[in-house]
Design a protein around this nucleic acid. Sequence first.
RNA 1: GGCGGAGUAGCUCAGUUGGUUAGAGCAUGCGGCUCAUAUCCGCAGUGUCGGGGGUUCAAGUCCCUCCUCCGCUACCA
Length: 665
Amino acid sequence: MERKTAMKRESFYISTPIYYVNGEPHLGHAYTSIVADVLARYHRQSGIPTFFMTGTDEHGQKVEEAARAAGKTPKEFTDGMAELFKPLWKELNISNDHFIRTTDEDHEAVVAEVWKKMTDNGDIYLGEYEDFYCVHDETFWKEGQLLEGHLCPNPWCRRPVEKRKEKSYFFRLSKYQQPLLDYYREHPDFVLPEYRMNEVTSFVNGGLQDLSISRTSFSWGIPVPGDAEHVIYVWVDALFNYVSGIGYKSDRSRYEKFWPATVHLIGKDILRFHAIYWPAFLMSVGLPLPQHVYAHGFWNIEGQKMSKSLGNWINPREMVQTFGLDAFRYYLLREIPLGPDGDFMRSSLLNRINSDLANDLGNLLSRSVSMGFKFVSGVVPQPASEPDNQVARKALAVYAAYRESMDDLKTNKALSDIWELVSYLNRYIDEKAPWVMARDASKKRELEIVMYNLLEALRLISVMLKPFMPDSALKMLQQLGYENPDCDFDVAGRWGVLSEGMKLQKGSVLFPRIDIETVENKESAVTENKNETANIEKPAAPAPLAVSAAPAEKTLPEGLIEYDDFAKVQLKVGLVLEAEKVEGADKLLKLKVDTGEERTIVAGIALHYKPEQIVGKNIIVVANLKPRKLRGIVSNGMLLAATQKDGKLAIVTTDGPIEGGSRVG
RNA sequence: GGCGGAGUAGCUCAGUUGGUUAGAGCAUGCGGCUCAUAUCCGCAGUGUCGGGGGUUCAAGUCCCUCCUCCGCUACCA
């Protein structure tokens, strides 16, 4: 973000996405909320009116189904789920000013109202959405996806489907293609980081189609005004939380103060909704657009994607119990910049805690306070008469860098700025060797000044750390003798705030060093607790323990796979019965193939084979590949072909005739 | 296939508009201090800055090409 932008901020409104309540909160949710919290706390400390909102997204078919499965009404179900998120945010010290639920009455009223506005502006029209329903699979398919004879394209089903023409309301998204592109050009920092802006622009450049924004297949949602058959598409519903939640209808003065939002913090997976649909909706309703949409990355776990099936789920609550809240918050913000993906590694977490927090910062505080008691009677000594000294200059330079980093939302840079001062102070102590001065009465005054510099610099560090580690920062300030500290930057962002005579306090170790044994003991304690605390509400799969210390037992040389992996691929011989060019596509042939059963395959070989050249040939088909729609036609499998360096292509076939459907492998 | 990004010390990365012996943190080795959470400080390194070619007095930094990885996207499957 440009420095200029940052300087202009008169208010700061930051949002997280509202989290969909079909699952338990995990590391990803916690990360977004913690980042938003840090930024919100920072801006409050800067004296800027701040509003920080998070909440839950509670409508939609999945919730309706999950509720039914749990034997509850949707409302009962979502009430329970919302109560799962709120206490976690408390535990993580999330300082949101409001928690919105899309089932809130005034939210629903806002959505109905904006729907009407979009209708009045001619941006919503009733159209038809032709669907084919497979009763067995309970799935809707589009015409182009079906197999010949209107059969379900699921290879394990292939039953006849029913035609279901559904009426649906559409939003004229196509109309906003150019306005969006214009807006992006005028506001190149609308989407952050920059490379995400490029992605969005190129997507919109590729053309936008009108968006189906109502459903009749389920009822758990906000009804379309004037047409109770339909409920409003969840994303229309969900996105407007950002204005309803600050009082678009219920609290106009708050709304006026904070809208447009400063930044919507989101995960990269929902960028399209926030960077394309959302601004188009707002343009249609005639509301100003948010200043920034910031898409952050995902956390991998020990190099692998986080997934339930891998069992590497990270439960934030367990992290907090094992390592402490502030250490956890610190790690998430320090380890990676806000934007790219990160890797959550146990070893790097322990490393950060032991090196940065325990050895560098914790020990610095500890040795400083201890010297305070030994050498200057446990009170803040008199500062130097001339405040211009190297420590003050260094501290203020770091402070300035920190402010700039934070204003630019570079949280990890801000933390490394702070640590520059931390290690500077450790060096300062070594150079000055206060324990030597203490033996020499003539050095008394010099010793006092060194001690003052140390304590005051530590105070400034605490103030800078407060958005990241609110509890630890306060503990630090307490030990430094600063009772009832004022941390607002206009008061605290200066040199010389600690005053002579303030009484230091001995405190407990701020960040204990962690050794592996301790961690393992704690972890087993957490596991035992879990039986008591878990399953308050929902049928969640038992969450696996923290991060597994032991990676896979055996690792294969790079690039090799197990036989089992290969065996998943089902190869069959296919006899090509018919072939024709796909209309409107240069490279695609549509093949009808006998692989024991008849199936349609779309292959990108039209530049190399004419339809008649391939009919009657045996091909090798990957038979259990997930069906995929190409140019409106569902392809059930893929044929094998070899490509030469220069692009020449030849299909793989059998040596002599063999029955279609024969297994290959 | 198209567009974009990345490939720098064992690991994670920083390197602004091309300009002195290429940096930080962690890990490793040696030395020092004792106020401190066996913590801290100092020193030592190792790098053909992905490969090749080019522009320039001068390139990690610009241009071309190739390789590998990642993101988005598509008439890849």
